[in-house]
Design a protein around this nucleic acid. Structure first.
Lengths: 135, 135
DNA sequence: TTAATAGTTGAACAGTTGATCAAGTGTCCC
DNA sequence: GGGACACTTGATCAACTGTTCAACTATTAA
């Protein structure tokens, strides 16, 4: 039997550790908000769609097979966390990913989610290296 | 007033777009699960703590000022999504970040959350380039 | 102005989730 | 074995979240 070197909670000291507030508390809360907004499959699918380019609400609703109102509510959540951009074009309102950071986050997560069982090269097309929201 | 070039939903065609299933559906669901697990401030703070190195439950509970049971429940959620590693050391169970991917995700999110108003150099110490769970 | 299209917002309801407590398992030491 | 310590698990309950429906605002075209 492998004897444990230290009887207690060995290699690290039990009390001489810097407090959890190593990173400013506000950042944690904001990051959690961002994750919470992305932590819903329909909403994440919506973001993935926007990763392919801008789209108006009607278009998104058609692609998702959902109600306009439902899509609008989902977009509101994403917008509240600053994850999507919004601009008007006539009668339509075009949504897109807010910035490259969001695209990176999305890509990273999908890469992790597909780890070891899907070819990541397919994911690359989701978020091209150039800015997805060209203007 | 700037006249709109196209009367309808201009620059992109309204129906000639590949379906949202550009990335396999399972990956979206898993990624959403990961985000959901990280989308809670106490849980994210816990992950940030583990980013500094392994820790046992008692230690985490002390740092967070929370109940053992509460911490255990939070760890269960994170473990269900494969975000943390677990190994026994005598009476204690040491938790850590599951892999570098999780660390990257964490770092990326905190970087985005602090965008433009905090120096990111501080965050770098949270997730060192070397693997945080040395064995 | 009126009608039609496009989207947002508020309320209500069902489903989910997180904290807490009590009871359980596993490991160490005597 | 027995007791102490270190967790885990199941149940309960309050709080939150997502969807739906109805009513509302905004833009365009006639």
């Amino acid at each position: 039997m492998p004897k444990v070197i230290d009887p207690a909670c060995a290699p690290h000291d039990h009390s001489a550790r810097p407090p959890a507030t190593f990173v400013r508390p506000g950042a944690i809360e904001r990051a959690a908000g961002i994750f919470r907004a992305m932590g819903d499959a329909p909403r994440l699918r919506l973001l993935a769609l926007l990763g392919q380019g801008e789209a108006c609400v009607t278009e998104i609703a058609a692609a998702a097979g959902d109600d306009l109102s439902t899509i609008s509510q989902r977009l509101r959540v994403l917008r509240n966390e600053g994850l999507v951009s919004r601009r008007r074009n006539g009668k339509h309102i075009l949504y897109g990913l807010a910035d490259q950071h969001v695209a990176d986050l999305l890509f990273n997560a999908l890469a992790h989610a597909s780890e070891g069982r899907a070819d990541l090269s397919r994911l690359a097309s989701l978020v091209p290296p150039t800015n997805p929201t060209q203007e």
